[in-house]
Amino acid sequence: MRKYKLTSALAEEIAKDVVRNEESWRRYLNTASRLYKYPFKEQLSIYAQRPDATACASIEIWNEKMHCWVNKGANGIALIDEDSFSGLKYVFDISDVHKARRIGQFPNLWEMREEHMEAVLSRLEKTYGDTDREAGFVVRIRGIAGRIAEDCYKELALDMEYFKEGEVKEPETEKSDVEQLNKRLSEMSAVEKICSALDWEDVVGWNEDTQAVTITDGERALEGKEVYDLLFAEAADYVMMQTISGKTQKALEMDGLLKEAGHYAARYEGKIVAEQTEEQPLTADDVENLVLIDREYIKGTRTMIYDFECDIRGEHDKLQYMLEYHDDGEGFTIHTEKDDIWERLPESELARLEGILGREVNECG
Rank of each mutant, 00 (worst) to 15 (best):
M254T: 06
A274S: 13
L290C: 05
L292D: 02
Q280N: 05
M254E: 04
R267F: 00
L252H: 07
A266S: 13
I293D: 04
K247C: 07
L252W: 11
Y264V: 08
N289F: 15
D229Q: 12
A236K: 12
D285F: 02
D286Y: 03
D285K: 11
D285Y: 06
L230G: 00
L258P: 04
T283I: 06
Q280M: 08
G224C: 03
V239Y: 09
G256N: 06
H263K: 12
E260L: 08
G224N: 02
G256Q: 07
E275G: 07
H263G: 07
R267L: 04
A261E: 05
A251Y: 01
Y238W: 11
L230M: 13
D229V: 09
D237W: 10
H263T: 15
I293V: 15
M254F: 04
E275M: 10
V291L: 09
I272S: 13
H263R: 11
A221S: 15
Y268S: 09
L258D: 00
S245Y: 09
V287I: 10
E279I: 12
G246F: 01
R295W: 14
E278K: 08
A284F: 03
T248W: 11
A221R: 12
E288L: 07
G256R: 08
Q280Y: 05
D255G: 09
S245M: 11
T283S: 10
E234I: 12
Q249V: 14
D294T: 06
L282A: 05
E260G: 01
K250R: 15
A251S: 10
N289M: 12
M254N: 06
G256L: 06
V239E: 11
A235E: 04
P281F: 01
N289C: 10
Y228H: 08
T283D: 01
Q249D: 15
V239H: 09
V291H: 09
N289W: 10
A236L: 07
Y228R: 04
E278I: 07
